[in-house]
Computed example of a mutant assay.
Amino acid sequence: MVAVAASIVTVSAIAQQPPTFKSGTQVVSLFVTVADAQKRLVPDLTKDDFEVFDNEKPQTITYFDNSVHPITVVVMLDTSGSMTLTIDLLKKAAEQFLIRLLPDDKAKVGAFNDKVQISAHFTNNRDELVGAAKDLDYGNGTRLWDAVGMSLDELKGIEGRRVVLVFTDGDDTESKTSLGTVIDRARAEEVMIYAIGLESNYFNGQRMVRSKPDRGLRKIADETGGGYFELEKTADLAPTFTRVAQELHSQYVIGFTPTQLDGRVHKLAVKMKQAGMTPRARRSYVAAADKITVSAR
């Protein structure tokens, strides 16, 4: 799988040890995870393995880095009534993601049902994060898009890579925020969203029913450059949360200098020159010069 996020940033924000650029250089950066035909992550690629297109026009890659970059992430879990039979498995699966955070990563943990709760502060203390996951509360409805919107609120003003990891087993039922609104926000605010959906069996008060995850999950993941995983078995929960952690710590950073900052949404595409590798790229970015302040170098 490949996950790609794009943003217009100062060069100094893309890497801890950036190369030398001219004063005032702007770069569209993309975080790329590459896997082979067997879905194994592929290390040791070079700049020449990638092609990048902006509105279908090929771009010259002016920046490339394959070191690990810290993330700030909000992990948001569905704890509505349909999750009653699998909530303990979900919390243990989420732990597999949290314990794989690196020392420079930071996270918050939250839950959504007919309300939305998020832990008080970002931390790199994995024990604290695991404890917060265990303490998440139950509820009834599913405020999925409200939860994603509140996660974006929590990430405002934070520098570096920002990620939302959201899990649900059903459709949004009570949000005031729409899918389209959170997609637009995530694109404009340059946040990558990973989504995990599960088909879940639960008792609806009359009989056992099987839920299907909201179809908007795939759309928001694709648009923002995150991965989408749809599961049929609870046994796949822990391996999938583990996979997300591995992807986020195995991403290449590539960048190009935009030729037109017209304030519009531009289509993005990443392609691999080498056969047998499948990129999945963020599909768009906002080409707005006023999104950042470029520092002189």
Rank of each mutant, 00 (worst) to 15 (best):
M1E: 12
A5D: 11
I8F: 05
Q17Y: 13
P18Q: 09
T20D: 13
G24Q: 11
V28Y: 00
S29P: 02
S29V: 10
F31L: 13
K39N: 15
R40F: 08
L41P: 03
L41R: 09
V42W: 04
V42M: 12
P43M: 10
P58A: 11
Q59R: 06
F64P: 04
N66T: 14
S67T: 15
V68D: 11
I71H: 00
V73W: 02
T79S: 11
L85V: 08
L89T: 10
A93M: 06
F97Q: 09
L101W: 02
D105Q: 05
D105G: 07
F112E: 05
K115A: 05
A120L: 12
N125G: 09
N125D: 15
E128K: 10
V130Y: 11
K134V: 09
L136T: 00
L136A: 00
D137F: 09
R143Y: 02
A147Y: 01
G149D: 06
E154N: 11
L155R: 00
G170M: 00
K176W: 10
S178D: 09
G180A: 13
I183K: 08
A186F: 03
I196R: 00
E199Y: 12
N201H: 14
N204G: 07
V209E: 12
K212L: 11
D214F: 00
E223P: 10
G226T: 08
Y228Q: 02
L231N: 03
L231F: 01
A235Y: 04
A238F: 04
A245D: 06
Q246A: 14
E247S: 13
L248F: 01
V253W: 03
I254G: 03
P258V: 06
G263F: 03
K267C: 07
V270H: 00
K271H: 13
K273N: 13
K273Y: 09
G276Y: 05
T278C: 03
R282C: 11
S284Y: 10
Y285W: 05
A288Q: 13
S295V: 15
